[in-house]
């Protein structure tokens, strides 16, 4: 099961309650290559809408990055590039993503992938002075949770 399927199951079946007041800022969703384009090629199914649905369940001010979905640009750290010793190329690669983010006006960017999150949060944010917050999609959900009363 993908992270999207499980989170959506909890949201749709009412197993978790979310508070939209926690994230009032402008929020953009980043399409990871592996959950989108590449998943479509490999398994015939892409996760484009699921991540958006989950993000919108947590925040009201939702922004798109253009182009997105099948045409989305890679963060620049995929395919193991985050661990590779070619950091100048990796940052250069990410210039398009950085431009998309600053054009969207988002203050928070949601990344459903470990690689993308690290590149956006630890590299592009500093290299391109984006001044953004970056969260995993499950981090967004966890931070929005209304905790049930149980002991």
């Amino acid at each position: 099961m993908s992270v999207f399927d499980l989170l959506l199951e909890y949201i749709k079946e009412g197993k978790i309650q979310l508070n939209k007041e926690v994230h009032k800022m402008a929020v953009a969703y980043h399409d990871p290559c592996n959950y989108g384009r590449k998943s479509l090629k490999a398994f015939g199914q892409a996760y484009f809408e699921e991540g958006r649905e989950i993000t919108k369940a947590c925040c009201d001010d939702f922004r798109e990055l253009y182009p997105n979905r099948k045409g989305a640009y890679c963060c620049g750290a995929g395919g193991g590039a985050w661990a590779m010793p070619f950091s100048a190329e990796r940052v250069f690669y990410g210039r398009i993503k950085a431009r998309q983010i600053s054009e969207s006006g988002a203050q928070l960017v949601i990344a459903p992938c470990h690689n993308c999150r690290d590149q956006l949060m630890k590299s592009l944010n500093k290299e391109y002075d984006l001044n953004i917050e970056v969260k995993y999609i499950w981090e967004l959900v966890a931070d929005s949770l209304i905790m049930p009363n149980k002991q």
Binding site: K38, K41, G79, A81, F86
Partner: peptide, 21 residues
């Protein structure tokens, strides 16, 4: 090929369906 992130933009745009990744 190691600086490439295998993001698939190339393959997505290829009109001849070359399996670049």
């Amino acid at each position: 090929p190691w600086k490439c992130t295998m993001c698939g933009k190339c393959e997505e745009s290829c009109p001849a369906n070359i399996q670049i990744i």
